[in-house]
């Protein structure tokens, strides 16, 4: 029972971590929180589900298309809702992002209707016994996919030219520009990658819960935001740890404390952590 809950938590936690990476990367480079990340997650899931529903696209292609669409949406959002407001007090882009988030949510409601959509293809997943705990292969696949994306991101940021350019912009935008880095392009690239990861998270969750609906991004988005802050915003390993930790805490809390307050657990932990250690578990770049 305990191990089972821990594993459930790890699965949702890995998805929170994927979204949290988007928050953290964008915060690292621009110093702002993209409140609409949860809606990007939802759009990624919708694109994949709609493509799969046509029956003519295979899963891998639909997955890539969903991530791509989410990424493009992120870049468009940056152009429309954030770039004109760069240099303002942080309150201004924050409210603008909230506006964008409501806009996208109601747009999805109009385009796709309020009902849950099931995931169009059923995978035949079996249950494997690991140390006496039945583990569904779906959970393992989601966990593996999420961890794989995180690994790819870490490699990208550490070892590629573009990754290093993003880090340089996050450290000091003006110096990066002097070194010949096109900062605006790096910001767009960051939005693309962060949003694509959120899109991937959305697709994985749509598959896991077998449901896609316009408001699906709201709570995961907010919880991932908490995870990013928990790990210290701007800190990539922190976001991963924060996400996994929140997922597990939520799952155990729902099982042993109260399932009615499941969605409150992440926020309660966040508030406690901020009161005791405002800079997050691992020190963020923000402070």
């Amino acid at each position: 029972m305990f191990l089972q809950q821990l594993l459930n938590g790890l699965t949702t936690g890995s998805v929170y971590a994927l979204i949290a990476l988007g928050y953290t990367m964008i915060y690292g480079i621009l110093g702002l929180i993209n409140f609409a990340q949860g809606e990007i997650y939802m759009f990624g899931a919708f694109v994949t589900v709609l493509l799969l529903a046509t029956g003519q696209v295979n899963f891998v292609l639909a997955f890539i298309a969903g991530m791509g669409a989410a990424g493009v949406l992120g870049v468009v959002l940056e152009r429309v809702a954030f770039r004109p407001l760069r240099g303002f007090h942080p309150l201004v882009p924050l409210i603008s992002a909230i506006g964008a988030s409501i806009f996208l949510q109601s747009l999805a409601l109009l385009l796709f209707g309020p009902n849950d959509r099931p995931f169009p293809i059923q995978f035949t997943f079996s249950s494997v016994d690991v140390a006496g705990v039945p583990v569904s292969t779906l959970q393992m696949a989601i966990l593996a996919a999420a961890l794989g994306f995180m690994g790819l991101l870490v490699v990208f940021v550490r070892y590629t030219r573009y990754g290093k350019a993003i880090v340089a912009c996050a450290l000091d935008r003006d110096t990066a520009r002097l070194m010949g880095i096109n900062v605006d392009r790096m910001v767009a690239l960051t939005f693309f990658i962060g949003s694509a990861l959120s899109g991937a998270a959305g697709i994985l969750m749509a598959c896991y819960y077998n449901a896609t609906y316009p408001r699906m991004g709201l709570l995961p988005g907010l919880k991932a935001f908490s995870a990013a802050i928990l790990g210290g915003v701007g800190n990539i390993p922190g976001a991963i740890l924060g996400g996994l930790f929140l997922g597990m805490a939520e799952s155990l809390g729902a099982a042993y404390i109260s399932s009615g307050y499941k969605d409150a657990i992440a926020f309660a932990i966040l508030i406690l952590v901020l009161l005791i250690r405002p800079q997050g578990i691992l020190r963020g770049r923000g402070e």
Binding site: V80, I95, S96, G99, I102, L107
Partner: peptide, 11 residues
Amino acid sequence: YQDLVYGALLV
């Protein structure tokens, strides 16, 4: 379209 308008209004 109410929420759509609110969102667009804010941005």
